[in-house]
């Protein structure tokens, strides 16, 4: 048998990695792959249905939908990946500390998270972007603010249960210091559920970015962005012009789907209980393996 774990060979994993690979290709080779400029309007070619010249048709200003969908991969993934990375880098150590040390500071931070998360995430995001100014980087900053509590809470919850586990007591008996226990023992065990959350959060960030742009609280025209493109076709949709909104929407679906699938794959891959079960069922029925004595 090959050394590739079973969970990496499931159809879900294959589709997930294929979509990821495709997106990386689109990001790297957007200028080569797109037949037109993503921002150049052509008033003569307004609202043309999909054809050989314009595979996905054109929008009301005559911009090529196909080229814009390709270029938007850059913007959408950039915002999502950067914001989740920032949230991860801040949230994980923060969660580790507030989980390990029970004190006033920890509970204050938790209360602050409670307040932030009392707001519906989309509503708060919308308000923050509106207040900070509608720019690409502000959208990323806002998403980072929204996702930081998610990671911090997740890590904290893990740490809270992990720190009561006997292996932490065993480490202390071996003379391990707080820092060693936090970073040597707890972080590694707590990080894996966070990895799953990273993938899911990137998907959520893509949806949020698109949603914000859709209502006009995100990036502005003519920047190629999927949500904005769906929005620009919304008025014509009722009149039967479907291609302007359909294709960028499909791009969102596949992009989010990709990260959801990868999240599932990571979960399966890193779940030690699954591996343990597989091993124990195979050894339990073999007699005499109890010890080599």
């Amino acid at each position: 048998m090959s050394r590739i774990p079973h969970s990496l060979r499931s159809p879900a994993a294959v589709i997930g990695f294929a979509l990821l690979f495709l997106q990386i290709l689109l990001i790297l080779f957007a200028p080569l792959l797109s037949p037109y400029s993503p921002v150049e309007a052509d008033a003569l070619a307004s609202l043309q249905p999909p054809s050989a010249a314009h595979w996905f048709g054109t929008d009301i200003t005559g911009m090529d939908v196909f080229s814009r969908v390709i270029y938007a991969t850059r913007i959408n993934l950039l915002i999502s990946v950067v914001s989740v990375a920032v949230a991860f880098l801040i949230g994980v150590p923060l969660g580790l500390f507030i989980g390990y040390y029970k004190g006033i500071v920890s509970s204050l931070v938790m209360r602050l998270f409670d307040f932030i998360q009392a707001f519906p995430i989309f509503v708060l995001g919308m308000a923050l972007v509106a207040v900070m100014g509608q720019e690409i980087w502000n959208v990323a900053i806002v998403l980072a603010i929204l996702f930081t509590p998610v990671f911090a809470r997740l890590i904290r919850a893990e740490v809270l249960s992990l720190r009561e586990r006997p292996f932490v007591a065993a480490a202390r008996c071996s003379g391990a210091s707080d820092l060693h226990i936090m970073f040597g023992h707890l972080l590694l065990n707590a990080l894996l559920p966070a990895m799953v959350q990273v993938s899911i959060s990137i998907g959520m960030a893509i949806l949020l970015t698109a949603g914000l742009s859709f209502i006009g609280a995100g990036v502005r025209m003519p920047v190629p962005e999927w949500g904005l493109m769906v929005s620009s076709g919304a008025q014509q949709m009722i009149l039967g012009v479907w291609w302007v909104s359909l294709f960028p929407g499909l791009a969102i679906v596949f992009s989010v789907l990709c990260f959801a699938l990868l999240g599932d794959v990571i979960r399966d891959l890193l779940d030690p209980t699954k591996t343990r079960r597989a091993v124990s069922t195979s050894t339990d029925i073999i007699p005499g393996i109890g010890g080599p004595l």
Partner: peptide, 18 residues
């Protein structure tokens, strides 16, 4: 379950209208 998590609500609304 996978698909529902990936579909933007504003987009599916437009598709339904169409």
């Amino acid at each position: 379950g996978l698909a529902a998590g990936a579909i933007p609500d504003f987009w599916i609304g437009l598709i339904l209208i169409f």
